[in-house]
Design a protein around this nucleic acid. Sequence first.
DNA 1: ACCAATTACTACACAGGTGTAGGAAACATG
DNA 2: CATGTTTCCTACACCTGTGTAGTAATTGGT
Lengths: 214, 214
Amino acid sequence: MTASASAAAKPAKAARRPYAARVPADVRRAQLHDAALRIIVRDGYDAISIDAIAREAGVTRPVVYGVFEDLRDLLGTLLDRQQERALAQLAEALPPEPDLSDPDQLVADTARRMIETVRADPMTWQPILLAASSMPEQARSRIDADRENFLTQVTGLIELGLALRGGPVLDAEVAAHAILAILEHFGRLLLTDPDRFETERLVATIAGVLTALR
Amino acid sequence: MTASASAAAKPAKAARRPYAARVPADVRRAQLHDAALRIIVRDGYDAISIDAIAREAGVTRPVVYGVFEDLRDLLGTLLDRQQERALAQLAEALPPEPDLSDPDQLVADTARRMIETVRADPMTWQPILLAASSMPEQARSRIDADRENFLTQVTGLIELGLALRGGPVLDAEVAAHAILAILEHFGRLLLTDPDRFETERLVATIAGVLTALR
DNA sequence: ACCAATTACTACACAGGTGTAGGAAACATG
DNA sequence: CATGTTTCCTACACCTGTGTAGTAATTGGT
């Protein structure tokens, strides 16, 4: 009451918000994608809203609507970007020309590269590995499709391995599910508690299981 | 406009809602718990709200507030109930006095009982196995604690198995994580697609992996 | 230094959820 | 059948998020 100056009625006038830096549309898109990803990683899928993203990026909602249709559009395009990144990283971790002469070494090396991949870019992998039912349907179906695809590849590799050793003493499809479950679980461990297990402990276990299955 | 009767202004008068059956408080609590569980199973954790639960149970919100503090209270007590059920079922599936003379058989039998357990009561297991980050913090931490506990038991069993076979050629803790990951993943498979894999295929794979690790 | 185009902000109407006060119906009991 | 108690409903005020119109600031080109 004792405070400031001239104006009679209005309480403080609600000082106009400082303008955020003016930025061309495509840069803004990337910024908003980044903001959304930070929210997902920090607070989970539930916390996403146009409002929250705008706040995180330091702008107002109309700015978001100027660049995206709606939340669905924003998340869809974010998924495109993250899917691309993830698949690229995965492709790099998988061996281009598997050296079948030493399967043990091959498995260990591949596992090691995958673990390092996740460690190196948690922002990309957390929304994929620590997601589940919460995430919007669009995300879930995309990730499921990629997972299914990867699963098929693994099944093929296992069948190949079994063939090299003789008759199929094991159910390749189920085994592939098991392997994938272990990989994903280890990925989650890396994300929630990176220091708990050293890479080599995880690698050794994966190698052990696969050796046993051969 | 051409329609009904006497009253001049009011459009249809919004006929009073028929009374839901009058029910004592403790029965209502159980009904609302059931309604909440149905919503979680059918639509996921995101879909829960006092409003949705009241609708699902065929009553109005004040009825819910008459019996629970708020959503946190409702979910917390629901968790108590479901946790109790799940742990009881799990205890029943685990062997009371493990017959160590035939470990292969023991593992297979235990795995089979666990699979049947999940098949028999999906309403209980789905919220536990298909949950992840979406669910409210209270739920996550409780389930995590139980999982951790179970993990410790499995680690102990593996160490026991390793000891019986001689030196520890394997990392028991990491192996326990791997086993648990497989179990949970198989549980999810059972819930999302019960007919895809027969029980014995899953049992055989689990037995195979564990045999290999022995 | 000005002007026009671009970009950001304020303010609004609307939708859906929370939590509560107060009235209305059903039920038990005499 | 009258009455008190329990249980349920309606109606409201409030909060948070959506999407849009209209206005104001910034900036690049001349």
